[in-house]
């Protein structure tokens, strides 16, 4: 029987998880790693078999959360001669914590640029967002910041940045003809989707960091922030769709206004709330990681 269909976001989340799993399993002998990978893959499919219809992002996330992080599959089986899969972070290794703290600080700075950018009226608000996404991508993909362990976020940030570039270009062209605005709609959708993916990946990355540095209370905060963000997301999408429908029905010729209203609510607003709801926990986490170094 073929596997259940997944939504694009769910498929991406699953692919990211399996990719990370494959990477960590390379620490084990080939025969073991192949078998474990197959088992986990089948486990995901079996766990999802209980759902009907298309598997959503939240359903996939729940299954993967129950499975646990990919690193947990090698903690017991890695040969004793090898270092533990989460090296030196369990104990107060100052160099490691310093590196991580600096990486988190840069990520925080890029996020601030993103949040501020939403409120600065510079040509459709996208320029700062584009800069921030490229910056985030550069930070997390740089070997100097490998401790963040957010490679998947780097790829998503790049795609999001280029989607925003496309959206920016077509928004400018829209001044010539409204048709350009419609053509730019896929870029708007892509940037929205990838912003959601980025958000999920950042939360997941921060939770991993909390586990590495044994700050389980922060892990709970990160989880609450993520849940609050997605609640706002659902509310803002609902309001956006409702308002767009009202505007369109009241004045059918104003479909561009509807699209603008939806764009306003779906893109900048949920980005704003999303990034605000993790900036404080991110900053506090960075301070907490720094504190054993300075104390």
């Amino acid at each position: 029987m073929p596997p259940l269909p997944r939504s694009a976001e769910a498929e991406r989340l699953e692919a990211d998880y399996l990719k990370r799993l494959k990477q960590v399993l390379t620490r084990l002998p080939n025969e073991l790693s192949v078998d474990i990978f197959e088992n986990v893959n089948n486990h995901i499919s079996a766990a999802l078999a209980g759902y009907s219809g298309e598997v959503s992002l939240s359903q996939m996330a729940q299954v993967l959360e129950e499975l646990g992080p990919p690193e947990s599959f090698v903690e017991e089986e890695a040969p004793p001669s090898q270092p533990p899969p989460i090296p030196e972070m369990n104990h107060a290794n100052n160099d490691s914590r310093q590196e991580l703290s600096e990486s988190l600080h840069l990520l925080y700075t890029a996020s601030i640029i993103l949040v501020i950018g939403i409120w600065i009226p510079l040509i459709d608000l996208y320029l700062f967002d584009i800069i921030a996404c490229f910056l985030i991508s550069k930070i997390v993909l740089s070997p100097a910041h490998k401790r963040l362990d957010m490679i998947d976020l780097g790829s998503s940030a790049k795609i999001c940045a280029w989607s925003l570039v496309g959206l920016f270009v077509f928004s400018v062209l829209e001044a010539l003809s409204p048709l350009w605005g419609l053509i730019g709609l896929p870029f708007a959708i892509a940037s929205l989707v990838y912003s959601l993916v980025m958000m999920w990946q950042i939360y997941a990355g921060l939770k991993r960091i909390c586990q590495q540095v044994e700050l389980s209370s922060f892990s709970t905060r990160i989880e609450k922030a993520r849940n609050t963000y997605f609640t706002f997301l659902i509310i803002s999408i609902s309001i956006g769709i409702l308002l767009a429908a009202i505007v369109t029905l009241s004045s059918p010729t104003n479909s561009e206004v509807s699209i603008e209203v939806m764009s306003l609510l779906l893109l900048p607003v949920n980005w704003f709330f999303g990034w605000m709801f993790f900036l404080k926990p991110l900053k506090d986490l960075q301070k907490q990681i720094e504190s054993p170094i300075t104390s």
Partner: peptide
């Protein structure tokens, strides 16, 4: 025990 412990164990027992 977590899945992260059980699955590697099952694989090891099979190997």
């Amino acid at each position: 025990m977590s899945e992260g412990t059980v699955y590697p164990l099952l694989s090891r027992l099979r190997v």
